[in-house]
Design a protein around this nucleic acid. Structure first.
Length: 124
DNA sequence: GTTGTGACATCGC
DNA sequence: CGCGATGCCACAA
């Protein structure tokens, strides 16, 4: 159906994003690009376009995500919070995520490798 | 229907 | 490592 139309199911896409965000273990963070990649390429969307704006669609989905979605665990590629205010940071700190002086998280340490990565917490 | 902006990523300097 | 510029889709006014 919709061989070429495939008008990018925003509803299904948003849902897929939320589902993926829910998979992020506590005390772990993921980037928008990571989530976008895990969700996969929506039908009818060019890989280039997805690479360029997929992460943004994820962010857009976050803006409408239900409360049961740990949106706070989603950060940008720099490991920093895009939103202003200190709400998100405080929520992450409550989970054990550390921030540096620049307000950035060390993705090498708290970055989520993905669903392939076991939920173990061998941080040390 | 056009214009503008966005919870970003990547490349170059 | 930081900053600037670019890419390109969807949605709101």
């Amino acid at each position: 159906m919709n061989p070429q139309a495939a008008p990018h199911d925003a509803g299904a896409f948003h849902r897929a994003v939320w589902q993926q965000v829910r998979a992020i273990p506590r005390g772990r963070v993921a980037t928008y690009g990571q989530i976008a990649k895990l969700v996969g390429l929506p039908e009818g969307v060019a890989p280039d376009a997805y690479r360029a704006f997929g992460a943004r669609w994820v962010g857009a989905a976050m803006g409408a995500c239900p409360d049961d979605v740990p949106w706070q665990r989603v950060l940008n590629a720099k490991g920093e919070i895009s939103l202003k205010g200190g709400t998100q940071r405080r929520l992450l700190e409550a989970e054990g995520v550390e921030f540096d002086a620049k307000g950035r998280v060390d993705l090498k340490r708290f970055g989520w490798a993905g669903p392939d990565e076991p939920k173990q917490e061998s941080l040390f």
